[in-house]
């Protein structure tokens, strides 16, 4: 049924007719299966070029390592890396777990610190001016030099790893949150103030939700640094972990095992990144609603303007 605003009739008639149409077939009229198939096709189309490039690279490497006359102790073929990884799976797994633990603990610490500090900075402008130069300076520290010092000060336990992971992951999230708070619409803030909300209320109801998209953008950057941060810390000194495993594999002239550990750490980062994207989707369901319209075929059955 085509419904169009009729200028010769009252607004009442127009709006109630518009409603009945939507009520009958509106939101249920969307057919999710079609949407899902479309999403799948799109996802496939997005990933296919990357997968192809990756496969080509591996093939070229494999051919070069096999037929280029290179010793496997210098450049092992991917197939050899895979075979050795499988053979040493127990040791690899044994060393992966502490790295995961350090990564997650460090990241969690960094996350909580970013939330608390960013909120403090949002309430106290002078604190922001005091802290930001320090934070930027912290990003200029060369990790190679800092990691051994942190281990020297805090030992071989979990603490130095947490600190180093936090050092590399804190900044992007902190900056994203602070910018996100500032991006709050002034009209929404004014509206809340007119309703009688105080500063804390406005922060909770408007500034924090406004910052979410920014926060997740920062989080996605952070999380790609997190595993590398943990490995650096282990490299500088640890009982177990992918970092120390790489070090000893290198010292034993086993580049295949070094590369196996590298592959594991990359996979770890990819999984964490994927989790971040998933959490973002779940935390911001309204973002998925964007572009979609209630009503059959996405058409608004009325003459009303769209934004």
């Amino acid at each position: 049924m085509a419904v169009w605003y009729d200028p010769l009739r009252g607004g009442e008639g127009a709006s109630s007719r518009e409603l009945s149409t939507i009520g009958e077939s509106g939101r249920d009229g969307q057919s999710p299966p079609q949407g899902e198939r479309l999403a799948f096709t799109r996802t496939f189309a997005n990933f296919f070029p990357a997968a192809l490039a990756f496969a080509l690279l591996l093939t070229a490497w494999e051919l070069y390592a096999r037929f280029g006359g290179i010793a496997p102790t210098v450049l092992p073929a991917p197939s050899r890396v895979l075979a050795q990884a499988w053979e040493n799976r127990a040791a690899l797994a044994d060393n992966t777990l502490p790295t995961i633990r350090a990564t997650l603990a460090g990241f969690a610490f960094s996350l909580v610190a970013a939330f608390i500090l960013s909120a403090l900075v949002d309430f106290l402008a002078p604190l922001r001016r005091a802290l930001f130069p320090l934070l930027i300076a912290s990003q200029t520290l060369p990790l190679v030099a800092i990691a051994p010092l942190v281990v020297l000060w805090f030992g071989f336990g979990l603490l130095p790893k947490i600190l180093l992971v936090a050092l590399v992951t804190f900044f992007p999230m902190m900056v994203a949150l602070v910018e996100g708070y500032a991006a709050t619409s002034t009209e929404i803030s004014q509206l809340l103030a007119a309703m009688g909300a105080g500063r804390w209320r406005i922060f909770w109801l408007a500034r924090l939700p406004s910052a979410l998209p920014y926060f997740f953008a920062g989080l996605r950057i952070s999380i790609t640094y997190a595993v590398v941060g943990a490995i650096f810390a282990e490299y500088a000194g640890a009982a177990k972990g992918l970092g120390i495993y790489m070090l000893s594999a290198k010292n034993n002239f086993r580049p295949d095992l070094v590369l196996a550990a590298v592959a594991v750490s990359s996979a770890l980062t990819l999984v964490l990144f994927g989790l971040a994207v998933l959490v973002q989707r779940l935390a911001m369901p309204w973002e998925n609603a964007k572009g979609e319209r209630a009503g059959p075929g996405g058409n608004r059955p009325s003459g009303e303007g769209r934004r």
């Binding site: 409603l19 009520g23 939101r27 609603a289 964007k290 979609e292 319209r293 009325s302 009303e304 934004r307």
Partner: peptide
């Protein structure tokens, strides 16, 4: 207010007039 059935919609799903 001409919004019956849209209680659980997100603002982005509404037309300008409905908003």
């Amino acid at each position: 207010f001409g919004l019956a059935g849209f209680e659980r919609a997100w603002p982005a799903e509404l037309s300008g007039g409905m908003r």
